[in-house]
Design a protein around this nucleic acid. Structure first.
Lengths: 316, 316
DNA sequence: GGGTCTTATGCCTTTGAGTTATGAAAATCG
DNA sequence: CGATTTTCATAACTCAAAGGCATAAGACCC
């Protein structure tokens, strides 16, 4: 004997409101409608739900007990409606973000923190990876979006890419590093200092190699490698080492860590930092919401970086 | 936008079973039926519940979340079915029992304990009172049944009475009381001892008065009054006081308290201990269940009492 | 006992749950 | 890769019941 949940919900409202008429009002239905529903329920369970011949309809013991269960069903149902509404606005759900480690740690994570504090019903799962791996995860829906630098020629099939800012790399060192006092930096100057190397499978590592080649530097003395951003920052500030980092990472890191970028143009593939998503899967609202948040955040970041550069230029 | 709870329940089963076909099986419905229900739900909430183009139907994030709520609704619904079943059998619900204090404490409460341990989903509310008060409460449905002694002429209108055993009163004293050594007890013997008086508004009190009159005892020396059974037992066993109690109460009390009944016939109105219920209100199943339990328990008690009396007779 | 408030019923329309039969698409397997 | 199996969607239909309005019937309150 299956009881209809709708009936239990109606019962709960009637008991709560203390009468059939008021209950019908609260439910937005007509009084005869709910009366019939209760008759039907009573005949189904074969026992009276209300004391017979009482005019402000009073529930029996069974009616009371069932009404409590109906109330539970009702709240679950209302939670469902709320969930759908929030989900539709991208204010609830699961957000699986992947990205290249240094950039995620250095720039995106603080933005995620902002986003998180505004949309607390969104659960965020972050992971790290590079282009191929992230593309694969996007394809089989293990990831909702990826944030990483992509070169124009590298764009994988069946993916959408939304650029956020240009991915300029710079040579970074600690604030007050000997090289920061030089007007113009020469090959010989750099030669004197050891290098921190990003993971060897990362684009940054290839950039570092290429950058050094571009300034005529064939061999480098690597004294630290394999660490994530936090380690790199520590080693960088605690020594006279040099490394290659996206400028945006240096810019953001300076809030808390004394770093500087050397005024030295380095050559690397032109690439855009941006958001990669799967073309054939529609984006969940939470993902859309997050992407539009990222766009405005990166615009703000870009303008702050531009402003600072102008100031530096004028001073320099 | 109201979501139908039934739909959420169906969704929960589909997600749990990992597919529409298996879900339909588990629900005992046809596959097209649940398919259409899910289509309807999807169109109502305006968002996909399942990943498109996946053959073992896989839920989206929203689908997962809603399925969790659906599962909650489902368990509540199942609890409701269970509750109705138990209620129908009188194994769940509320049981409001009223009765005369001494008899409830001395005899019925141990039976209630037995009953309680078998039917733990029945909530029992016990209260005390005498005929008029209990009848009133039965009339306005504040009580499901009352257990008390009723005289033939006293039967109130509109009530059903189910006799359980005859309500013989005896004079009780502690075991080893001086009077227990007498073969035949005379008025003069009794005169020497003080009395414990039941509450003055109780039938027992009137019985006591009448009993004393019947043995020619006009005045009694009351040294304790107003206590409930536990107090009476304590005072009785700790002194040489006498009192009037239903024989069944003395019989039951002897399990834990050293009491005896004096072999002295006392005169009082013939009355039956039994169950009083309202005639116009149908008895809830739990009440019916309890009454039939009481009937068999009292039969057992009666036969134990008869047996003991025979033994005593033979010995005495 | 009349008036009021509350619930039940009769009669109607419409929604949607349920069925079987069948078609389409994805997954699986050789 | 193609064939087969599995899984889901659709079509066409029936029927239960939700829901509405109008109205009767029954408590409740002076």
């Amino acid at each position: 004997m299956k009881i209809e949940s709708e009936h239990l919900e109606i019962l709960a409202v009637i008991v709560e409101k203390g009468g059939l008429t008021d209950g019908a009002d609260a439910l937005g239905k007509s009084q005869p409608s709910v009366s019939r529903s209760m008759n039907l329920l009573e005949s189904r369970i074969g026992m009276p739900l209300f004391e017979p011949g009482r005019r402000p309809l009073r529930p029996t013991q069974l009616g009371q007990s069932l009404a409590r269960l109906g109330a539970r069903i009702r709240t679950a149902n209302q939670e469902a409606s709320l969930l759908v509404r929030q989900f539709r606005q991208g204010r609830a759900g699961l957000l699986r973000v992947g990205g290249s480690p240094i950039f995620m740690d250095g720039v995106v994570s603080t933005m995620i923190a902002d986003f998180q504090s505004r949309s607390q019903d969104i659960q965020i799962q972050q992971s790290y990876g590079y282009l191929d791996e992230l593309t694969g995860k996007l394809r089989n829906a293990a990831l909702d979006l990826a944030i990483l630098p992509v070169q124009p020629g590298q764009m994988p099939q069946g993916m959408d890419f939304m650029p956020l800012m240009s991915g300029n790399n710079v040579i970074a060192c600690r604030a007050g590093h000997p090289l920061t006092h030089h007007r113009a930096i020469t090959l010989g100057d750099i030669d004197a200092f050891p290098w921190i190397s990003p993971p060897m499978d990362s684009p940054l590592f290839r950039d570092l190699e290429r950058a050094l080649k571009s300034i005529g530097h064939e061999e480098m003395r690597v004294t630290f490698s394999g660490g994530s951003l936090a380690s790199i920052q520590s080693v960088l500030t605690g020594s006279d080492s040099l490394t290659v980092l996206p400028y945006s990472v240096v810019f953001m890191s300076r809030r808390t860590v004394p770093l500087e970028a050397l005024p030295l143009k380095i050559d690397h593939a032109s690439r855009q930092l941006g958001v990669l998503t799967s073309k054939d899967r529609p984006l969940p609202p939470a993902t859309q919401h997050f992407i539009s948040f990222l766009v405005t955040e990166f615009q703000r970041l870009q303008s702050r970086m531009d402003h600072e550069n102008q100031v530096t230029m004028r001073r320099g």
